[in-house]
Amino acid sequence: MPYSNILKDHLARPRNAGELADANRVAEQTNPACGDRLKLSLRVRGGRIEAARFLAYGCPPTLACGSVLTELIEGLTVDEALRVSRAEIIAAVGGLPARKTHAAALAVETLHQAIGQIHRQV
């Protein structure tokens, strides 16, 4: 179980955990295979993500990717946020074991759903 110290730190001290009372974008995605869940709430003003909060249930990578995602996207414009990739999220948690990369995919999908674009990636 070779998790990075960065990932463990996000697990011990999750950033931006919770929900925004004044969110205007909320999305929740479940990985149908393993049941991992990620809920994202955003406050978007003037095309910019002012605040992001997350809730997550599942394996440590899912929790850490949710935490990292909120850090990555706060302050970005919506267009910039849509360009945040799985690889970027994986790098930001200090790497993921190959069998756990689906956690980053769940984060990207939830973000795209929140922003309002259905993400289709082959």
Partner: peptide, 23 residues
Amino acid sequence: EGLLINLDMQGVAVSTGSACSSG
């Protein structure tokens, strides 16, 4: 597993029987 890692970081070693792999 999240609980296991949290406890491990505080010096408590435990085991879990569940595993999530390849999604």
